[in-house]
Design a protein around this nucleic acid. Structure first.
Lengths: 348, 348
DNA sequence: TTGTAAGCGTTATCAC
DNA sequence: GTGATAACGCTTACAA
């Protein structure tokens, strides 16, 4: 046959080593190689060894894109966080990522900066990759996001924000409880004029919840709650300074201040030092977050530590359970309420 | 025909809305829909509008996995960092991620914890997704990694560690220069007995480089360098405390201490306060890193700020240039040496 | 500007 | 335990 068809020209993926190359090298079909990776038990010992050798020799790397297309399930999990570099979510991302990769899953990450629009656009892009699951931070989504999520039909996990009445798996803690823990601690230590400082940013609902836990507890203890919100649009650190200065300048100053977060508290601490006050003698200070700097301040900062790392790890575990990658057959628990821990240091 | 063939059962991607569905809804071929997304200019205005409407109505989300397989280029970029939650790399990741997503690329992220083995395993998993480019942190790879990278044939960028003699695109700064900047600053401020404190971890080569820059500068200024390394395996914060205590307890104590990083410096600052020393009167303190807590210390910490965010943003830009996604036709600059900035605060 | 056909590299299915 | 074959949903190449 002189006019035999010329082989189709290579247009793309040229040069990549494929499963087929491995299969031919060993003298089996591609299916055997595929099984070697996915169900090794079903491949004979002899073949397993020869395939392993061929994979090593050829430097074969399975094409997960092709695999994902064929099986409609890629080992990718997507996560949207408000930000990566802040003190809040970093540990969660770390725990999530590490736990996933231990089980052969990859993390697709994007940040929303607390914007529903950015969250929606990130999720839209993610869904195109058919992630095996999706983890979001907060329950506050745009309409479009909700619609996509409903259609997507993959495990969805909402973290940080604990909303038991919502359908997705919830992993978080109670901000209200944080307020209770903090108020009780200060009371236990003997303080009686306990103020709470809220950030000036009015949109921080979780800080609001903490203040409510604080207020209820104080009332239950027969004390008068006093919530102070610095005026103006200050950065938290500056707001904390102002709050302490104003509160301590009053005729009846507090003997303890519970700040809505550690940034505020650090500002308060600094202002107190500059004013020549002795902490906690003249006024105890308590924060929330256990940001990395808390133990480096002088005096170092008592605070309440949210289970950030634990949220990440647990989110990954719930994802892996949903996918049957661990604890096969076990339905992942839907409601996961974690505990915050009081870290008592010198400032209280 | 009573025995008409039953339609092939859906095994996978069942239910997903495809390009084909959109095409039929509009009455065009799939190629027109494909072009609508990839080369909209080549689609008539009329079709564009009708496709847009159909996409919205059906809630179509392009399957990037299929697209990636067909075109052998997915809009995914992979990055390996030592860790996500530490103070060092967080800004780089943030800048990288944000810049990428602004251009429609997604970030695949993993951490190596400074382990070459973990880096290799992460990269191996990444390559299966045919990332459009790969960004790593440091140049210190395992043999297997080097081999994979050589075969991969995608843009590779090495960040943080600036190694001009290596082939991949380099984005970083000079640790040596950091030492120079710090030494000069302290000299300019009038200090003459300037010590340098290294972390006890001997494996930190970049800290070593900073100390060399410091030592050379001091010699050039006619001063005697004095490098102190706390004994034992202490956490940086503790090591910093010990270093300051020991150095200041000497008969000829330094009048300024340049710590290899802010964690050490924070420990030094704290130890100084506890010892009743006034900073910077009795001894100036300078750090490196500008970790978030630096401005919250009392006195707040003078330090040298590495261009972390800038590294991330620039890495993304170089990736996008390599892919022709921005500045088409421009070859990305291979060597990118960025500047560190001295942040002068109260401690010096 | 649009359409047809082939193929990307893998896995599901079913037959042996 | 193994293999042949048909998808998976999209894009390249080429034709109209």
């Amino acid at each position: 046959m002189s006019d035999m068809k010329s082989p189709p020209r290579k247009r793309r993926g040229a040069g990549r080593i494929t499963q087929d190359a491995v299969a031919r090298h060993v003298g089996v079909s591609t299916m055997t190689v595929s099984r070697y990776f996915n169900q090794p038990d079903q491949v004979s010992e002899d073949h397993r060894q020869r395939i392993a050798a061929a994979v090593a020799e050829l430097g074969y790397v399975p094409n997960l894109v092709a695999g994902g297309l064929a099986s409609a399930k890629g080992r990718i999990v997507a996560m949207v966080v408000p930000n990566i570099s802040g003190p809040i979510f970093a540990d969660t991302i770390q725990g999530f990522s590490d736990t996933l990769s231990q089980h052969g899953y990859q993390l697709l990450l994007a940040s929303s900066y607390f914007s529903k629009e950015q969250e929606e656009s990130a999720i839209r892009a993610f869904l195109g990759w058919s992630p095996a699951a999706l983890v979001v931070t907060s329950h506050f989504h745009s309409e479009g996001t909700e619609k996509m999520l409903a259609n997507a039909d993959i495990p969805l996990i909402e973290t940080w924000d604990y909303q038991p009445e919502r359908a997705p798996i919830q992993i978080g803690f109670s901000h209200h409880q944080v307020g209770v823990i903090g108020a009780r601690h200060l009371h236990d230590k003997g303080y009686r004029r306990i103020a709470f400082v809220l950030n000036s940013a009015s949109g921080d609902f979780s800080a609001q919840e903490r203040s409510e836990g604080y207020a209820e507890t104080l009332v239950a203890l027969g004390l008068a709650p006093q919530i102070y919100t610095p005026a103006g649009e200050l950065a938290p650190f500056e707001a904390g300074k102002r709050a302490l200065t104003e509160l301590m300048g009053r005729s009846d100053p507090p003997d303890a201040i519970f700040f809505a977060n550690d940034n505020l508290a650090a500002g308060g601490l600094l202002a107190a030092q500059r004013a020549g006050l002795s902490i906690p003698k003249n006024c105890a200070i308590l924060g929330f977050g256990d940001y990395p700097f808390a133990e480096m301040l002088m005096p170092n900062l008592s605070t309440i530590k949210p289970p950030a790392l634990q949220i990440g790890v647990l989110a990954a575990q719930r994802v892996l359970q949903s996918l049957g990658a661990i604890d096969e057959g076990v339905e992942p628990q839907r409601l996961n309420l974690l505990e915050c821990r009081l870290i008592e240091r010198e400032s209280s």
